[in-house]
């Protein structure tokens, strides 16, 4: 049974084979609670209270402490390429909350005895078991140049998937009609990791590294990646091809 809802500012899909509506409801309920706590767009969220200076660290929830600590660890592991501090001084852990929340939701389903399911939120995916046809879950990587096309099919077989991408790399001045160097080096980076949390936190950081990001992923055991550059050329880590075999 599959259902898609808009939460955390994006469509979220939960597909549980042979599940009751109640279990799907549990997952959405959990994700909604996470959104209420971590959304920087909600003035009454815990993160907003922290950023206003209204909540001393002694009052932070266990979940908040866990996420912020994870964000700090990720920052260390990525040479600062993942950093939840925004230029205006506010904390914004949204780059890690998505993967962390899906990972926890998958744990919730495992604990409930679900064996075959898939959770997708904003391009991050955690799957388990088989789809309704009894086959491995298949994931299509969206064409960054055409939303209606996919450019690669992978079979994560229980691994987590995250795709990172923005229209621009921030500091670069870009000229849409210029003759110059491509103004954005890469447009999409897909990372496959042991679980969606690992995939998500490294995908965010690796994307910020531009063309070097895929090498950063190559250098980390347990992670594979597929990056698409501005010219439509893709680069694969050495183990990525294995994920494409049905």
């Amino acid at each position: 049974m599959r259902e898609t809802r808009i939460l955390m500012g994006m469509p979220i899909t939960v597909d549980i084979c042979g599940a009751s509506g109640a279990l799907i409801e549990d997952v959405f309920g959990y994700l909604d609670r996470i959104d209420r706590r971590f959304s920087t767009y909600k003035t009454d969220s815990e993160i907003s209270a922290i950023n206003r200076g209204d909540l001393p660290s002694s009052g932070w929830s266990d979940e908040m402490i866990e996420v912020l600590a994870l964000a700090e660890r990720t920052k260390d592991e990525t040479g600062g390429y993942f950093d939840m501090r925004r230029p205006d001084g506010y904390l914004d852990p949204s780059g890690i909350v998505k993967g962390w929340a899906i990972h926890n939701a998958a744990g919730l389903l495992h604990a409930a005895g679900a064996k075959d399911f898939l959770i997708e939120a904003g391009g991050d995916i955690q799957s388990a078991g088989k789809n309704a046809s009894g086959a491995d879950w298949s994931v299509g990587i969206r064409d960054p140049f055409d939303m209606d096309q996919i450019i690669k099919i992978i079979y994560p077989r229980g691994r987590g998937v995250a795709t990172s991408g923005t229209y621009a790399r921030g500091q670069h001045i870009y000229n849409p009609y210029g003759f110059d160097e491509p103004i954005t080096e890469i447009v999409s980076l897909t990372v496959v990791g042991p679980d969606v949390l690992e995939a998500d936190r490294f995908a965010t950081a690796a994307f910020a590294m531009g063309r070097d990001g895929i090498y950063f992923i190559e250098g980390l055991a347990g992670l594979e990646g597929y990056v698409v550059d501005i010219n439509g050329r893709a680069t694969l880590t050495t183990g990525f091809g294995d994920l494409c075999a049905p």
Binding site: L118, W137, G140, R142, D143, P144, I150, I151
Partner: peptide, 15 residues
């Protein structure tokens, strides 16, 4: 990159 069949269970993309 080249277009593939769209017959997949789910799509991962950052749009």
């Amino acid at each position: 990159i080249s277009a593939q069949s769209a017959d997949v269970d789910i799509i991962s993309g950052a749009t």
